[in-house]
Amino acid sequence: MYGKRSRFLTIMLTLGLAFFYIPMIMLVIYSFNYSKIVPVWGGWSLRWYNELFQSQEVWEAVSLSLQIATLNATFATLLGTLAALAMVRFGRFKGRTLFGGMIVAPLVMPEVITGLSLLVFFISLNELIGWPAQRGFTTITIAHITFSMAFVAVTIQARLTGMGQDLEEAAADLGAKPFKVLTAITLPRLTPALVSGWLLAFTLSLDDLVIASFVTGPGANTLPILIFSRIRLGLRPDINALATIIILVIAVCVAIAAILMLRQQRRDLRDQQLAAGEG
């Protein structure tokens, strides 16, 4: 049954993939459409790309989003790693279960609630100590860190648990003090998880519309906020062009990741051959 290729499965797969990718392909094609009205084909053109590159508003939003995402990812990785280390490597301590629950709570909290509560918090804080005077870059960044940290903590926690403690114990046994164990053994071993945690936090921040809308202020438009506000005024082809560029960047990143993975696989195979060769 598994050997024969089932026609039914092939059709379902084709339909599934089509459902995912046809909208994107359409978006890419329409970004090259000369016509101002999206569904009407007016011939191939780079007109909207040209317009996009001229639009200061768009580039300011892109730049703001990238800055927030980078800062967010870095802090979220730092704090998330510390939280994960406390959970996995510090044994039992008082309030550990509560702490663990509080770390993962933002994962299940509806974004609307998170956004609203943060807005209330920032407003009250402003009343109390006069900071933040204005909502925008700083408040969005803080808001993003609070929720993406949870994702990083969970990623790192899984990796730490999977790694076991043998290597760290071995390093301590050989005379490495706790900080040295962290820098020489734990962190290098964690690198893949740190990278994926950072990228996850980066993507989450770049992607977020709901929370950012709550805590943003005048003039601070992230890219999702900008796109969403423009869509409300009607579909515009320059947004298609922007989306096409984003898709292209993501495609390049995925391709690089695939090549790196393939290389790693080859290296693993070579290692195994070496180990078996002169055993």
Binding site: G164, D166, L167, E169, A170, A171, A172, D173, L174, G175, A176, K177, P178, A184, I185, P188, R189
Partner: peptide
């Protein structure tokens, strides 16, 4: 553990995978 006059050989060997044989021993 890091100040005891003992060393341990682990059942899993616990060799540091990101270091060469030489560096493992020199650690």
């Amino acid at each position: 553990a890091y100040e005891r006059p003992t060393n341990m050989m682990f059942q899993s060997y616990a060799l540091f995978p990101h270091m060469s044989v030489e560096k493992n021993i020199a650690f």
